[in-house]
Design a protein around this nucleic acid. Structure first.
Lengths: 160, 160
DNA sequence: ATTTCAATTGCAAAATTATGCATTTTTATT
DNA sequence: AATAAAAATGCATAATTTTGCAATTGAAAT
């Protein structure tokens, strides 16, 4: 009745979504605890089918994730983010620094969003009331940085 | 002058973004061809730092990707997608089928979006002019499917 | 029920990736 | 410039993941 496989993959999915899996062996244990019988080889194949990715996590070493499954939370945040982009006024460059001017009071929120997204191109930010200082990574060009910003706040696209 | 590392990682980034890397050895070759000298060990560490993920690809086996870097194209498509969600009218379930009713003419576009996203919960779709038939995977619940749809078109959230 | 074909899985080995440790290279300090 | 401290890297190996192949299991057809 070919149901074992489906059920198993469904369970794998759930476990992965909790974001606490560091290796296939570990996942295998959890599955066995829940009564599934299989080997790591089969698991590897399941993960391939489910397109489960192994991604480095700054703190936890490596974790397994399901790419498509962006959490609801993150999705709805995008609206807020795009709203904030309205506060953006202008950007100027000097060496490895970029200075962003915003409407009064917007600087901190926007900087927070950037920090949160932590684009690789930007090492860090400092924000006042209507100004944000972005320190960019060595070897990054202006357009790299602009792209990074657009990536964080799609709406900026039109204002740059 | 500690510049080699930065440059190298920058190059790694570029290569990965082209989406044609299947293994570290392969990437290593490309880097060497471009004049970088390093071992697989260092590369592994670089990838960890850059948070490069190894993800199964239906056709190509496995490819390395940079999670955060969603392509501009994809990002801007989201607007179109959310616009389409306006055409959504209603959804009904029967067994492992779901029937979506849309405004006249919307069915095909919406189905196309779903097909493209290819959520795991949905095996396939058939679309007429104002009706879409969704065939769901075995073992999936109604709410699983609804969540999958919301994942594809965030704006649906409010209409369900 | 028996046979046939395809799908699923385990086993064992190959392939790939991660890491401890020693060494080299950079950076900072005096 | 010399020395000390920190960062980066290679080597060798361990750990993990993937895969070819044979065996098993389930489904379909006669």
């Amino acid at each position: 009745m070919m149901k074992k496989k489906t059920e198993r993959q469904l369970e794998i999915r759930k476990i992965i979504l909790d974001g606490k899996v560091h290796s296939q062996e570990e996942l295998l244990m959890q599955l066995k605890k829940k009564g599934f019988e299989l080997t790591q080889a089969t698991l590897s194949r399941d993960l391939k089918l489910l397109q489960v990715a192994k991604v480095p996590h700054p703190a936890k070493g490596y974790i397994y994730v399901i790419p498509g499954a962006e959490k609801r939370e993150e999705a709805s945040q995008k609206n807020r983010v795009n709203f904030l982009a309205d506060g953006f006024k202008d950007i100027q460059f000097s060496g490895n620094l970029a200075v962003v001017k915003t409407l009064p009071g917007y600087a901190n929120s926007i900087a927070a969003v950037i920090d949160r997204a932590a684009p690789w191109e930007i090492i860090g930010t400092v924000a006042g009331d209507d100004t944000i200082l972005l320190i960019q990574r060595e070897g990054i060009t202006k357009s790299d940085l602009i792209n990074a910003l657009i990536n964080v706040m799609p709406n900026l696209r039109d204002k740059l």
